[in-house]
Nucleic acid binder design. Structure first.
Lengths: 194, 194
DNA sequence: ATAGTATTTGAATATATATTCTAGAACTAA
DNA sequence: TTAGTTCTAGAATATATATTCAAATACTAT
Protein backbone atom coordinates (compact mmCIF):
# COMPACT_ATOMS: atom_id res chain seq x y z
CA UNK A 1 0.00 0.00 0.00
CA UNK A 2 2.94 2.35 0.54
CA UNK A 3 3.51 5.12 3.00
CA UNK A 4 0.31 6.55 4.48
CA UNK A 5 -0.62 9.97 3.18
CA UNK A 6 -0.40 12.94 5.52
CA UNK A 7 -1.97 15.34 3.02
CA UNK A 8 -5.16 14.82 1.08
CA UNK A 9 -6.46 16.44 -2.06
CA UNK A 10 -9.28 17.89 -0.01
CA UNK A 11 -6.86 19.44 2.44
CA UNK A 12 -4.96 21.10 -0.37
CA UNK A 13 -8.16 22.34 -1.99
CA UNK A 14 -9.28 23.79 1.33
CA UNK A 15 -5.97 25.55 1.81
CA UNK A 16 -6.03 26.91 -1.73
CA UNK A 17 -9.65 28.01 -1.29
CA UNK A 18 -8.83 29.88 1.90
CA UNK A 19 -5.92 31.66 0.24
CA UNK A 20 -7.91 32.40 -2.92
CA UNK A 21 -10.63 34.03 -0.85
CA UNK A 22 -8.10 36.03 1.17
CA UNK A 23 -5.76 37.13 -1.62
CA UNK A 24 -7.48 36.38 -4.89
CA UNK A 25 -6.30 33.56 -7.14
CA UNK A 26 -3.63 35.71 -8.76
CA UNK A 27 -1.64 36.08 -5.56
CA UNK A 28 -1.91 32.45 -4.53
CA UNK A 29 1.49 30.73 -4.74
CA UNK A 30 2.30 27.05 -4.52
CA UNK A 31 4.56 27.78 -1.58
CA UNK A 32 1.67 29.63 0.07
CA UNK A 33 -0.71 26.74 -0.42
CA UNK A 34 1.86 24.35 1.00
CA UNK A 35 2.40 26.55 4.05
CA UNK A 36 -1.35 26.93 4.63
CA UNK A 37 -1.79 23.15 4.41
CA UNK A 38 1.30 22.46 6.55
CA UNK A 39 2.90 20.52 3.71
CA UNK A 40 6.11 20.80 1.68
CA UNK A 41 5.73 21.97 -1.89
CA UNK A 42 6.70 18.57 -3.23
CA UNK A 43 3.58 17.06 -1.71
CA UNK A 44 1.42 19.54 -3.57
CA UNK A 45 2.94 18.35 -6.82
CA UNK A 46 2.45 14.77 -5.76
CA UNK A 47 -1.31 15.36 -5.80
CA UNK A 48 -1.68 17.84 -8.64
CA UNK A 49 0.32 18.20 -11.81
CA UNK A 50 0.44 21.97 -11.62
CA UNK A 51 -0.73 25.06 -9.79
CA UNK A 52 -3.26 25.62 -12.54
CA UNK A 53 -4.83 22.22 -12.03
CA UNK A 54 -5.22 22.83 -8.30
CA UNK A 55 -6.77 26.25 -8.81
CA UNK A 56 -9.15 24.73 -11.34
CA UNK A 57 -10.18 22.19 -8.69
CA UNK A 58 -10.81 25.05 -6.28
CA UNK A 59 -13.27 26.71 -8.61
CA UNK A 60 -14.90 23.49 -9.78
CA UNK A 61 -15.39 22.25 -6.24
CA UNK A 62 -16.97 25.56 -5.27
CA UNK A 63 -19.20 25.74 -8.33
CA UNK A 64 -20.30 22.11 -8.13
CA UNK A 65 -21.22 22.49 -4.48
CA UNK A 66 -23.22 25.67 -5.01
CA UNK A 67 -24.85 24.57 -8.20
CA UNK A 68 -26.01 21.19 -6.94
CA UNK A 69 -27.68 22.90 -3.99
CA UNK A 70 -29.32 25.50 -6.19
CA UNK A 71 -30.43 23.19 -9.00
CA UNK A 72 -31.90 20.66 -6.58
CA UNK A 73 -34.41 23.31 -5.53
CA UNK A 74 -34.84 24.72 -9.02
CA UNK A 75 -35.84 21.29 -10.31
CA UNK A 76 -38.64 21.09 -7.73
CA UNK A 77 -39.86 24.66 -8.01
CA UNK A 78 -43.56 24.87 -8.91
CA UNK A 79 -44.58 28.34 -7.79
CA UNK A 80 -43.34 31.74 -6.73
CA UNK A 81 -42.64 30.66 -3.17
CA UNK A 82 -40.44 27.85 -4.43
CA UNK A 83 -38.60 30.30 -6.65
CA UNK A 84 -37.88 32.52 -3.65
CA UNK A 85 -36.40 29.54 -1.85
CA UNK A 86 -34.10 28.99 -4.81
CA UNK A 87 -32.92 32.57 -4.62
CA UNK A 88 -32.26 32.30 -0.89
CA UNK A 89 -29.80 29.48 -1.49
CA UNK A 90 -27.24 32.17 -2.32
CA UNK A 91 -27.20 34.15 0.96
CA UNK A 92 -27.40 30.90 2.93
CA UNK A 93 -24.49 29.49 1.01
CA UNK A 94 -22.43 32.59 1.76
CA UNK A 95 -23.15 32.24 5.46
CA UNK A 96 -22.36 28.53 5.52
CA UNK A 97 -19.06 28.68 3.63
CA UNK A 98 -17.70 32.16 3.29
CA UNK A 99 -14.40 31.33 1.60
CA UNK A 100 -16.01 29.16 -1.05
CA UNK A 101 -18.61 31.82 -1.70
CA UNK A 102 -15.94 34.48 -2.12
CA UNK A 103 -14.18 32.27 -4.64
CA UNK A 104 -17.37 31.78 -6.57
CA UNK A 105 -18.95 35.20 -6.35
CA UNK A 106 -16.15 37.74 -6.48
CA UNK A 107 -14.11 36.30 -9.37
CA UNK A 108 -14.52 35.10 -12.89
CA UNK A 109 -14.39 31.47 -13.76
CA UNK A 110 -11.40 32.04 -16.01
CA UNK A 111 -9.39 33.57 -13.19
CA UNK A 112 -9.23 30.00 -11.90
CA UNK A 113 -9.09 28.09 -15.17
CA UNK A 114 -5.69 28.91 -16.59
CA UNK A 115 -5.11 28.42 -20.32
CA UNK A 116 -2.81 25.43 -19.98
CA UNK A 117 -4.82 23.06 -17.78
CA UNK A 118 -5.78 19.54 -18.92
CA UNK A 119 -8.94 19.29 -21.00
CA UNK A 120 -10.67 17.35 -18.22
CA UNK A 121 -11.08 20.51 -16.15
CA UNK A 122 -12.50 22.49 -19.02
CA UNK A 123 -14.98 19.72 -19.67
CA UNK A 124 -16.18 19.76 -16.08
CA UNK A 125 -16.67 23.51 -16.29
CA UNK A 126 -18.59 23.15 -19.54
CA UNK A 127 -20.82 20.51 -17.98
CA UNK A 128 -21.61 22.81 -15.08
CA UNK A 129 -22.63 25.57 -17.47
CA UNK A 130 -24.76 23.18 -19.50
CA UNK A 131 -26.48 21.80 -16.39
CA UNK A 132 -27.32 25.30 -15.21
CA UNK A 133 -28.66 26.18 -18.63
CA UNK A 134 -30.98 23.21 -18.91
CA UNK A 135 -32.03 23.38 -15.26
CA UNK A 136 -33.12 26.97 -15.71
CA UNK A 137 -34.73 26.25 -19.07
CA UNK A 138 -36.98 23.49 -17.74
CA UNK A 139 -37.88 25.54 -14.68
CA UNK A 140 -38.71 28.50 -16.91
CA UNK A 141 -41.06 26.34 -18.94
CA UNK A 142 -43.02 25.67 -15.74
CA UNK A 143 -42.72 28.96 -13.87
CA UNK A 144 -42.82 31.42 -16.75
CA UNK A 145 -44.65 29.64 -19.56
CA UNK A 146 -45.20 31.61 -22.74
CA UNK A 147 -42.38 33.98 -21.82
CA UNK A 148 -39.82 33.69 -24.61
CA UNK A 149 -37.17 35.21 -22.34
CA UNK A 150 -38.17 33.05 -19.42
CA UNK A 151 -34.82 31.39 -18.90
CA UNK A 152 -32.98 34.68 -19.00
CA UNK A 153 -35.41 36.26 -16.56
CA UNK A 154 -35.13 33.30 -14.24
CA UNK A 155 -31.34 33.54 -14.34
CA UNK A 156 -31.50 37.20 -13.38
CA UNK A 157 -34.07 36.62 -10.63
CA UNK A 158 -32.76 33.41 -9.05
CA UNK A 159 -29.02 33.90 -9.53
CA UNK A 160 -28.25 37.49 -10.47
CA UNK A 161 -30.30 39.39 -7.92
CA UNK A 162 -29.23 37.36 -4.90
CA UNK A 163 -25.65 37.40 -6.12
CA UNK A 164 -25.66 41.16 -6.40
CA UNK A 165 -27.27 41.55 -3.02
CA UNK A 166 -24.63 39.51 -1.19
CA UNK A 167 -21.84 40.94 -3.34
CA UNK A 168 -22.28 44.26 -1.54
CA UNK A 169 -20.95 42.62 1.62
CA UNK A 170 -18.25 40.38 0.16
CA UNK A 171 -15.41 39.69 0.44
CA UNK A 172 -14.96 41.05 3.97
CA UNK A 173 -18.33 40.71 5.63
CA UNK A 174 -21.30 38.37 5.70
CA UNK A 175 -24.75 39.37 4.41
CA UNK A 176 -26.97 40.16 7.41
CA UNK A 177 -30.14 38.07 7.81
CA UNK A 178 -32.35 41.06 7.07
CA UNK A 179 -31.41 41.12 3.41
CA UNK A 180 -33.13 37.81 2.79
CA UNK A 181 -36.47 39.60 2.94
CA UNK A 182 -35.19 42.22 0.53
CA UNK A 183 -34.01 39.54 -1.86
CA UNK A 184 -37.33 37.72 -1.60
CA UNK A 185 -39.32 40.83 -2.43
CA UNK A 186 -37.03 41.72 -5.33
CA UNK A 187 -37.23 38.21 -6.77
CA UNK A 188 -41.03 38.13 -6.65
CA UNK A 189 -41.18 41.46 -8.44
CA UNK A 190 -38.61 40.42 -11.04
CA UNK A 191 -40.62 37.30 -11.88
CA UNK A 192 -43.84 39.27 -12.27
CA UNK A 193 -42.28 42.03 -14.35
CA UNK A 194 -43.27 42.04 -18.06
CA UNK B 1 10.15 71.20 -23.99
CA UNK B 2 11.83 68.03 -25.21
CA UNK B 3 10.77 65.38 -27.60
CA UNK B 4 7.00 65.24 -28.17
CA UNK B 5 5.22 62.35 -26.53
CA UNK B 6 3.82 59.59 -28.71
CA UNK B 7 2.08 57.80 -25.81
CA UNK B 8 -0.21 59.28 -23.20
CA UNK B 9 -1.21 58.06 -19.79
CA UNK B 10 -4.75 57.72 -21.05
CA UNK B 11 -3.64 55.55 -23.95
CA UNK B 12 -1.83 53.22 -21.59
CA UNK B 13 -4.79 53.08 -19.22
CA UNK B 14 -7.08 52.24 -22.13
CA UNK B 15 -4.77 49.47 -23.31
CA UNK B 16 -4.48 48.07 -19.80
CA UNK B 17 -8.25 48.29 -19.34
CA UNK B 18 -8.88 46.38 -22.55
CA UNK B 19 -6.45 43.65 -21.53
CA UNK B 20 -7.78 43.51 -17.99
CA UNK B 21 -11.28 42.97 -19.31
CA UNK B 22 -10.13 40.32 -21.77
CA UNK B 23 -7.72 38.38 -19.57
CA UNK B 24 -8.29 39.52 -16.01
CA UNK B 25 -5.73 41.68 -14.21
CA UNK B 26 -3.66 38.68 -13.17
CA UNK B 27 -2.71 37.79 -16.72
CA UNK B 28 -1.96 41.33 -17.81
CA UNK B 29 1.77 41.78 -18.43
CA UNK B 30 3.71 44.98 -18.99
CA UNK B 31 4.84 43.63 -22.35
CA UNK B 32 1.21 42.96 -23.22
CA UNK B 33 0.12 46.47 -22.29
CA UNK B 34 2.96 47.89 -24.36
CA UNK B 35 1.99 45.76 -27.37
CA UNK B 36 -1.68 46.73 -27.05
CA UNK B 37 -0.75 50.41 -26.90
CA UNK B 38 1.81 50.08 -29.71
CA UNK B 39 4.58 51.23 -27.40
CA UNK B 40 7.86 49.74 -26.17
CA UNK B 41 7.96 48.63 -22.54
CA UNK B 42 10.31 51.41 -21.58
CA UNK B 43 7.67 53.98 -22.42
CA UNK B 44 5.26 52.34 -20.01
CA UNK B 45 7.81 52.82 -17.25
CA UNK B 46 8.35 56.38 -18.32
CA UNK B 47 4.71 57.12 -17.39
CA UNK B 48 4.17 54.82 -14.45
CA UNK B 49 6.60 53.67 -11.80
CA UNK B 50 5.38 50.09 -11.87
CA UNK B 51 2.84 47.66 -13.27
CA UNK B 52 0.97 47.85 -9.97
CA UNK B 53 0.59 51.62 -10.25
CA UNK B 54 -0.84 51.34 -13.75
CA UNK B 55 -3.30 48.62 -12.77
CA UNK B 56 -4.37 50.76 -9.82
CA UNK B 57 -5.06 53.60 -12.26
CA UNK B 58 -7.16 51.25 -14.35
CA UNK B 59 -9.42 50.41 -11.44
CA UNK B 60 -9.55 53.93 -10.05
CA UNK B 61 -10.39 55.42 -13.45
CA UNK B 62 -13.19 52.88 -13.89
CA UNK B 63 -14.56 53.34 -10.40
CA UNK B 64 -14.40 57.13 -10.48
CA UNK B 65 -16.22 57.25 -13.80
CA UNK B 66 -18.99 54.90 -12.69
CA UNK B 67 -19.37 56.37 -9.25
CA UNK B 68 -19.57 59.97 -10.34
CA UNK B 69 -22.37 59.07 -12.76
CA UNK B 70 -24.22 57.08 -10.12
CA UNK B 71 -23.80 59.51 -7.23
CA UNK B 72 -24.86 62.48 -9.34
CA UNK B 73 -28.28 60.87 -9.67
CA UNK B 74 -28.34 59.55 -6.12
CA UNK B 75 -27.80 63.05 -4.78
CA UNK B 76 -30.89 64.31 -6.63
CA UNK B 77 -33.15 61.33 -5.95
CA UNK B 78 -36.37 62.36 -4.20
CA UNK B 79 -38.74 59.48 -4.90
CA UNK B 80 -38.99 55.92 -6.07
CA UNK B 81 -38.83 56.85 -9.75
CA UNK B 82 -35.58 58.69 -9.16
CA UNK B 83 -34.21 55.66 -7.32
CA UNK B 84 -35.00 53.47 -10.31
CA UNK B 85 -33.07 55.86 -12.54
CA UNK B 86 -30.09 55.48 -10.21
CA UNK B 87 -30.27 51.71 -10.53
CA UNK B 88 -30.43 51.89 -14.31
CA UNK B 89 -27.09 53.67 -14.41
CA UNK B 90 -25.48 50.26 -14.11
CA UNK B 91 -26.86 48.52 -17.22
CA UNK B 92 -26.41 51.71 -19.22
CA UNK B 93 -22.83 51.99 -18.09
CA UNK B 94 -22.17 48.41 -19.16
CA UNK B 95 -23.56 49.13 -22.62
CA UNK B 96 -21.62 52.36 -23.00
CA UNK B 97 -18.21 51.02 -21.92
CA UNK B 98 -18.05 47.27 -21.78
CA UNK B 99 -14.37 46.87 -20.91
CA UNK B 100 -14.50 49.35 -18.06
CA UNK B 101 -17.62 47.69 -16.73
CA UNK B 102 -15.99 44.28 -16.83
CA UNK B 103 -13.05 45.66 -14.87
CA UNK B 104 -15.36 47.12 -12.28
CA UNK B 105 -18.01 44.45 -11.99
CA UNK B 106 -16.27 41.12 -12.39
CA UNK B 107 -13.28 41.65 -10.14
CA UNK B 108 -12.42 42.76 -6.67
CA UNK B 109 -10.87 46.10 -5.99
CA UNK B 110 -7.83 44.44 -4.47
CA UNK B 111 -7.17 42.45 -7.61
CA UNK B 112 -6.10 45.81 -9.05
CA UNK B 113 -4.58 47.42 -5.97
CA UNK B 114 -1.43 45.43 -5.34
CA UNK B 115 0.14 45.54 -1.87
CA UNK B 116 3.18 47.58 -2.88
CA UNK B 117 1.63 50.59 -4.65
CA UNK B 118 2.21 54.18 -3.46
CA UNK B 119 -0.10 55.39 -0.72
CA UNK B 120 -1.68 57.93 -3.09
CA UNK B 121 -3.60 55.19 -4.88
CA UNK B 122 -4.89 53.68 -1.69
CA UNK B 123 -6.06 57.11 -0.59
CA UNK B 124 -8.01 57.62 -3.79
CA UNK B 125 -9.68 54.25 -3.33
CA UNK B 126 -10.55 55.10 0.26
CA UNK B 127 -12.05 58.41 -0.85
CA UNK B 128 -14.23 56.62 -3.38
CA UNK B 129 -15.53 54.28 -0.72
CA UNK B 130 -16.20 57.16 1.65
CA UNK B 131 -18.03 59.17 -1.02
CA UNK B 132 -20.24 56.21 -1.84
CA UNK B 133 -20.96 55.70 1.82
CA UNK B 134 -22.02 59.24 2.53
CA UNK B 135 -23.87 59.58 -0.76
CA UNK B 136 -25.98 56.57 0.06
CA UNK B 137 -26.42 57.65 3.66
CA UNK B 138 -27.85 61.05 2.82
CA UNK B 139 -30.09 59.57 0.13
CA UNK B 140 -31.32 56.98 2.60
CA UNK B 141 -32.29 59.71 5.04
CA UNK B 142 -34.56 61.14 2.34
CA UNK B 143 -35.83 58.02 0.60
CA UNK B 144 -36.09 55.62 3.51
CA UNK B 145 -36.52 57.79 6.60
CA UNK B 146 -36.94 55.98 9.90
CA UNK B 147 -35.39 52.85 8.45
CA UNK B 148 -32.30 52.14 10.56
CA UNK B 149 -30.94 49.92 7.82
CA UNK B 150 -31.78 52.42 5.10
CA UNK B 151 -28.30 52.87 3.74
CA UNK B 152 -27.70 49.17 3.55
CA UNK B 153 -31.00 48.57 1.81
CA UNK B 154 -30.29 51.36 -0.64
CA UNK B 155 -26.89 49.86 -1.42
CA UNK B 156 -28.51 46.52 -2.15
CA UNK B 157 -31.28 48.05 -4.24
CA UNK B 158 -29.37 50.67 -6.22
CA UNK B 159 -26.01 48.92 -6.60
CA UNK B 160 -26.29 45.26 -5.72
CA UNK B 161 -29.41 44.27 -7.64
CA UNK B 162 -28.44 45.95 -10.93
CA UNK B 163 -24.90 44.65 -10.56
CA UNK B 164 -26.13 41.09 -10.12
CA UNK B 165 -28.52 41.42 -13.02
CA UNK B 166 -25.84 42.52 -15.49
CA UNK B 167 -23.29 40.14 -13.99
CA UNK B 168 -25.23 37.24 -15.52
CA UNK B 169 -24.19 38.46 -18.95
CA UNK B 170 -20.62 39.59 -18.24
CA UNK B 171 -17.87 39.30 -19.21
CA UNK B 172 -18.74 38.00 -22.70
CA UNK B 173 -22.09 39.52 -23.55
CA UNK B 174 -24.01 42.73 -22.99
CA UNK B 175 -27.20 42.91 -20.92
CA UNK B 176 -30.19 43.06 -23.29
CA UNK B 177 -32.48 46.09 -23.01
CA UNK B 178 -35.33 43.98 -21.65
CA UNK B 179 -33.63 43.46 -18.31
CA UNK B 180 -33.94 47.14 -17.46
CA UNK B 181 -37.63 46.59 -16.76
CA UNK B 182 -36.79 43.60 -14.61
CA UNK B 183 -34.24 45.62 -12.67
CA UNK B 184 -36.71 48.45 -12.22
CA UNK B 185 -39.40 46.17 -10.82
CA UNK B 186 -36.93 44.45 -8.50
CA UNK B 187 -35.60 47.75 -7.20
CA UNK B 188 -39.07 49.13 -6.44
CA UNK B 189 -39.91 45.97 -4.54
CA UNK B 190 -36.63 45.97 -2.64
CA UNK B 191 -37.20 49.54 -1.48
CA UNK B 192 -40.70 48.75 -0.26
CA UNK B 193 -39.74 45.54 1.51
CA UNK B 194 -39.79 45.73 5.33
C1' DA C 1 24.06 76.05 -34.91
C1' DT C 2 24.16 74.54 -30.20
C1' DA C 3 22.65 73.30 -25.80
C1' DG C 4 19.18 71.52 -23.09
C1' DT C 5 15.34 68.46 -22.19
C1' DA C 6 11.75 65.16 -22.44
C1' DT C 7 10.77 61.14 -24.55
C1' DT C 8 11.41 56.79 -27.07
C1' DT C 9 13.55 52.27 -27.63
C1' DG C 10 14.54 47.57 -26.66
C1' DA C 11 18.19 44.75 -25.01
C1' DA C 12 20.20 43.38 -20.48
C1' DT C 13 19.28 42.21 -15.78
C1' DA C 14 16.93 40.97 -11.62
C1' DT C 15 13.55 38.59 -9.24
C1' DA C 16 9.86 35.91 -7.96
C1' DT C 17 7.91 31.66 -8.15
C1' DA C 18 6.63 27.33 -10.66
C1' DT C 19 8.51 22.95 -11.34
C1' DT C 20 11.78 19.13 -10.99
C1' DC C 21 14.44 15.84 -8.78
C1' DT C 22 16.88 12.87 -5.62
C1' DA C 23 16.74 10.95 -1.12
C1' DG C 24 14.56 9.07 2.47
C1' DA C 25 10.51 7.56 5.28
C1' DA C 26 6.54 4.65 6.36
C1' DC C 27 3.76 1.42 5.29
C1' DT C 28 2.16 -3.86 3.20
C1' DA C 29 2.89 -8.38 1.61
C1' DA C 30 5.48 -12.53 1.32
C1' DT D 1 13.91 -9.59 6.63
C1' DT D 2 13.35 -8.09 2.09
C1' DA D 3 11.11 -6.20 -1.83
C1' DG D 4 7.77 -3.28 -3.52
C1' DT D 5 5.09 0.83 -3.21
C1' DT D 6 3.51 5.31 -2.10
C1' DC D 7 4.32 9.29 -0.12
C1' DT D 8 7.06 13.06 2.29
C1' DA D 9 10.64 16.46 2.04
C1' DG D 10 12.86 20.49 0.56
C1' DA D 11 16.90 21.98 -1.99
C1' DA D 12 18.16 22.85 -6.81
C1' DT D 13 16.70 24.46 -11.28
C1' DA D 14 14.02 26.58 -14.85
C1' DT D 15 11.19 30.08 -16.47
C1' DA D 16 8.43 33.92 -16.98
C1' DT D 17 8.13 38.56 -16.56
C1' DA D 18 8.98 42.97 -14.03
C1' DT D 19 12.35 46.41 -14.02
C1' DT D 20 16.56 48.93 -15.26
C1' DC D 21 19.51 51.32 -18.17
C1' DA D 22 22.28 53.37 -21.77
C1' DA D 23 21.72 55.29 -26.14
C1' DA D 24 19.27 57.49 -29.59
C1' DT D 25 15.68 60.77 -31.08
C1' DA D 26 12.91 64.92 -31.76
C1' DC D 27 11.67 68.79 -30.22
C1' DT D 28 12.46 74.19 -28.00
C1' DA D 29 14.99 78.12 -26.81
C1' DT D 30 18.97 80.97 -27.29
Amino acid sequence: MGRPARFTKTGLIDAATTLSARLGPARVTVAGIAREAGAPVGSVYHRYPSQGALLAEVWLAAAERFQSAALALVAKARNEDDAVECALVTPRFVRSDHATAVVLMTHRRDDFLSPGIPKEYRDRAAKLAADMRTGLATAAARLLPSDPRGREKLAVALIGIPLGAVRIFLPQAVPPPEIDATIAAAVRAALKAP
